[in-house]
């Protein structure tokens, strides 16, 4: 049994102590990452219990969306299908992972209320649960990406190691955003609605369904300052055989560092209160 054989809980002893306790939670959640994995897997299995295709249903509907948008919008924007469908396919799949991980982050602690209020499980376990669950879904959707890349011949020019690096940056950033909204949503129940509005707006403002080079130069700030654009571009560009701009990595690295620092500081500060929010 790997539950704590020694448990110490104390009152506040200054900010440094709170950070130490938060780090301890982080370490404990890392040691029990298999528990987060079990919970995530259970979520995936139970959501699609009784359905024959299971999670492939979202893959299927996503595939139809890719096809529809790829063909119709490609025609509207006068972009050849060969370039537009792969662009939209990769975009929808990875942007979907970004938005659902963030949206579902709102429920992370709210859903775990029962367990949090009577066990000493690390709180971050539930953050990893949400992230891992969405990575499982992503694994399903990669079928679309693989299919499109192979069909349109991009698989020969795709740079997989760089795409994997991009995925790392994507997950590193999405994880802190998911955790941030988890904490804030536990306290203020209006946050999930706000988060959903933001991710919805992001879907329109970010080049998922439209090509970034179509935007006039004077509006380029929409791309340069859009974190979602950089998240997406780090994975999409290498898969489509393009290079990723250096400032995208810079942006993502800075965002990860600052984001994690802020989120972790918030976590250290609210950790003992979160269970009472629920």
């Amino acid at each position: 049994m790997d539950t704590a054989t020694h448990m110490l809980r104390t009152g506040r002893r200054g900010p440094l102590f709170e950070v130490q306790m938060a780090l301890r939670d982080l370490r404990a959640s890392g040691e029990r990452i298999d528990l987060a994995w079990s919970l995530a897997w259970h979520d995936v299995v139970s959501r699609y219990r009784g359905s024959i295709l299971g999670p492939l249903w979202i893959t299927l509907s996503m595939g139809l969306m890719v096809l529809g948008i790829g063909v119709l919008w490609g025609e509207l924007f006068r972009v050849p299908v060969q370039t537009f469908i792969p662009f939209v396919a990769v975009g929808i799949v990875f942007f979907g992972t970004v938005t659902t991980t963030i949206n579902e982050g709102c429920d992370t602690f709210v859903q775990a209320a029962g367990m949090l209020s009577q066990t000493s499980l690390p709180m971050l376990t539930f953050v990893w649960r949400t992230v891992l669950r969405n990575l499982v879904y992503l694994a399903h959707h990669l079928v679309i990406v693989a299919g499109v890349l192979i069909y349109f011949g991009y698989w020969t020019t795709a740079n997989y190691p760089i795409a994997a690096l991009g995925l790392f940056f994507l997950v590193a950033n999405v994880a802190w955003i998911s955790m941030l909204v988890a904490i804030v949503s536990a306290r203020f129940r209006d946050i999930p609605q706000i988060v959903q509005s933001i991710t919805q707006a992001a879907a329109i403002m970010t080049p998922v369904f439209w090509l970034p080079d179509r935007i006039p130069a004077r509006y380029h700030l929409i791309l340069d300052l859009n974190p979602f654009y950089h998240l997406l571009e780090a994975v999409r560009a290498p898969l489509l055989g393009k290079t990723v701009a250096a400032h995208t990595y810079l942006f993502l690295a800075a965002m990860a560092v600052v984001g994690w620092a802020l989120t972790f500081a918030l976590f250290a500060n609210t950790r003992r209160r979160i269970v009472h929010y629920l």
């Binding site: 448990m7 110490l8 104390t10 009152g11 009577q118």
Partner: peptide, 14 residues
Amino acid sequence: SGAYEPDEGSIEVQ
């Protein structure tokens, strides 16, 4: 059980 953090004082369980 470890679910609540004390506001003051301490809990220690071996």
